[in-house]
């Protein structure tokens, strides 16, 4: 159970960063931290004690394998995370060129 609580703590660390940081890049990093805490949880869900990696070896008879489905899910989610992070970075750099700063307090066009 401890590992799940640690995942949750990591999630909260990301959320704290998302709320308190004022720098665009740091906000993106906080989002990534939250993402990876969830990936960690997904992998842990599929873990089975003493399980082998889920590749069928014709030479070996029946074994206990870990659940491969969460791993496939995490791989796909990592790809999606890559796309989201790349988009965030592109927008952040564009914003930097407009405002000459990464500080979110300087960007007030849409306040209210």
């Amino acid at each position: 159970m401890t590992v799940y609580i640690l995942c949750f703590v990591l999630f909260l660390v990301g959320l704290y960063g998302l709320i308190t940081r004022r720098n665009l890049i740091k906000i993106a990093i906080s989002l990534s931290i939250m993402e990876f805490s969830i990936f960690l949880m997904l992998v842990l869900i599929g873990y089975i004690d003493n399980g082998l990696m889920p590749i069928v070896d014709p030479g070996l008879s029946a074994q206990v394998y870990v659940d491969p489905l969460p791993q496939a899910m995490v791989l796909t989610a990592i790809v999606i995370g890559l796309a989201t992070t790349a988009m965030l970075m592109a927008i952040a750099i564009r914003l930097y060129r407009k405002y000459k700063t990464f500080d979110i307090r300087e960007m007030k066009n849409l306040r209210g």
Binding site: T84, L88, A92, R94, K98, M107, N109, L110
Partner: peptide, 13 residues
């Protein structure tokens, strides 16, 4: 423009 980028960043987060 400035507003578009800012709105998109907010939307993405």
């Amino acid at each position: 423009g400035k507003t578009e980028l800012e709105a998109s960043f907010k939307y993405q987060v």
